[in-house]
Amino acid sequence: MVDLFKEKLSDAEQTVAFGGRLSSACSEATCIYLHGDLGAGKTTLTRGFIQGLGHQGNVKSPTYTLVEPYELADWNVYHFDLYRLGDPEELEFMGIRDYFSDNSHCLVEWPERGEGVLPLADIDLTLRYDGEQRIIALQANTEIGKQVLQKL
């Protein structure tokens, strides 16, 4: 089984395409933590993930709402952006545990801001710049995560 996966992405189009590949590899409910500096491509990748599951509309960053839900034919996808989260306890008040279900994929930007409240990620995904390109690295933390990386 694969525990670590790395790839270079030359531009935003490849980042979106990789998000689509990633969503296709997720056959079970999956929790993915997204790491990277501001502007590294976390929301761009999420757009590809959600569109890869059939969403036709806009995919926006939930910077001010904390979570943006997408109800699709086969899955619910929840895109979290915890950058503006003041205290992890705020997640308890919004019913965070209800989002992590058997028919949902959860993608969490800035997960360190929710430490102690969020469940374990199946995959830790990191995007970082390498000149004009990006390097994406995925680390599997669970059997579900290992199965996803194997499919990639």
Rank of each mutant, 00 (worst) to 15 (best):
Y33W: 13
V16S: 07
S10M: 06
L22Q: 11
E28D: 12
R21A: 14
S27I: 11
C31F: 15
A25T: 08
Y33C: 10
V16G: 04
A29H: 09
D11C: 10
G20N: 06
K8E: 14
G19D: 11
L38S: 05
A29L: 13
S10D: 09
F5E: 01
L9Q: 08
T15K: 00
S24T: 11
R21Q: 15
S10N: 07
S10W: 04
A29D: 12
L22P: 01
G20A: 14
F18G: 02
C26G: 10
H35N: 07
C26L: 15
F5T: 01
L38A: 14
K8T: 06
H35L: 14
L9A: 08
A17M: 02
G36F: 09
E13I: 06
G19F: 12
K8Y: 14
D37A: 15
S24N: 11
A17R: 00
C31H: 09
F5S: 00
L22C: 10
I32E: 01
Q14V: 02
S10C: 01
T15R: 03
H35D: 03
K6F: 01
A12Y: 05
V16N: 01
C31D: 09
T15L: 07
E28Y: 09
S10P: 00
Q14R: 07
A29E: 05
A29I: 10
G39K: 00
T30G: 04
L22D: 03
A12P: 08
L38K: 10
A25C: 12
Y33R: 00
C26K: 08
A25Y: 10
H35P: 00
A12K: 03
E28G: 05
T15M: 04
G39N: 05
I32L: 05
L38Q: 06
A17I: 00
C31N: 10
A12V: 09
H35M: 02
D37N: 13
D37H: 12
S24V: 03
A25M: 13
S23I: 14
A40G: 05
R21I: 07
C31V: 15
G20Y: 08
S10L: 13
S23C: 13
C26W: 14
S10T: 04
E13S: 06
L9R: 07
E13C: 02
A29Q: 09
